[in-house]
């Protein structure tokens, strides 16, 4: 039983039989409520955010379709920068710990969440995933969300930024087909660019579509195989973490 979130308390009472007589008076009223339905998730996300601020952990939430190269990007990131940055990973999948197994070759600070029937991670899962990580040795926490361009974009986890990944094998029109994931993200990574010579993928058109949804989007093109674009990815990680830390200093609650 979790004290912070009170989980385990979400069962509904079953319908009771009306055995009592209706002597007492009832008023049939319309009451205004005005509450956001995802308040519960958002509040816990906010608590996670506080935790990350206080512990100087820069948290990123990766969104993409299945097979866009998220795990391969993380493998290459750990391999290339793992000795310079303290990176921890949360792997979200419906089933299996294949991704965590792959990444454990490069880092011990990896934990897997299986959502089973769920199509997205939520702030509650992240809250508990933190129990399985070495938080003393953590500068970056990268959360690989369930491969799905729709649902995960609605659920805040407490991340500082969302990143959307789109591989060149998917087609350049994804940003318009699934605009919400792009609308919510601050960095778009176009991955697997080593395959461009073999495909009809129109990079300029894709960038145009992304900017249609989010004109101010930062876009990085990279290949986890040839490491093209990795300098830019590394710089982004360094600069954004720095501005997160100075923000966390000034905006202390």
């Amino acid at each position: 039983m979790c004290n912070t979130c009170g989980c385990g308390n979400t069962t509904f009472t079953t319908k009771h039989k009306h055995s009592h007589s209706h002597e007492h008076h009832h008023n049939h009223d319309e009451v205004s409520v005005e509450q956001k339905i995802l308040d519960f998730n958002d509040e816990l996300a906010h608590q996670n955010e506080h935790f990350f601020h206080d512990n100087k952990i820069f948290c990123l939430n990766l969104l993409s379709s299945p097979g866009s190269g998220k795990t391969t990007l993380l493998e290459a990131t750990l391999r290339e920068f793992g000795d310079q940055f303290k990176i921890g990973l949360v792997e979200g999948d419906q089933q299996t710990d294949f991704d965590a197994q792959r990444l454990m070759k490069y880092s011990k600070n990896v934990t897997q969440i299986n959502t089973n029937r769920g199509c997205h991670l939520d702030s509650h899962m992240i809250h508990h995933a933190l129990e399985n990580l070495d938080l003393e040795n953590l500068e970056y926490l990268i959360v690989e969300n369930v491969g799905n361009l729709v649902c995960p974009s609605m659920f805040k986890l407490g991340e500082a930024k969302k990143i959307v990944i789109l591989s060149v094998t998917e087609g350049e029109d994804k940003p318009l087909k699934y605009p919400n994931a792009f609308f919510e993200s601050e960095l778009a990574i176009i991955s697997k660019i080593d395959l461009l010579p073999y495909l009809d993928f129109d990079v300029e058109k894709c960038i145009g579509y992304i900017k249609q949804v989010k004109p101010e989007m930062k876009i990085i093109l990279l290949s986890s195989k040839t490491l093209e674009g990795f300098d830019e990815w590394k710089n982004w990680l360094i600069e954004e973490k720095e501005s997160f830390l100075s923000e966390a200093m000034h905006h202390h609650h």
Binding site: H24, H25, H26, N27, H28, D29, E30, V31, S32, V33, E34, Q35, K36, I37, L38, M154, K211, Q212, V213, P215, E216
Partner: peptide
């Protein structure tokens, strides 16, 4: 023809009201 917008509405997800029976 710009794509830069400030959204005013259209992203809501909320309860606005309920019809209830109040105990008196």
């Amino acid at each position: 023809g710009s794509f830069k917008f400030e959204m005013l509405s259209g992203m809501e997800l909320q309860i606005s009201k309920m019809e209830v029976e109040q105990n008196v």
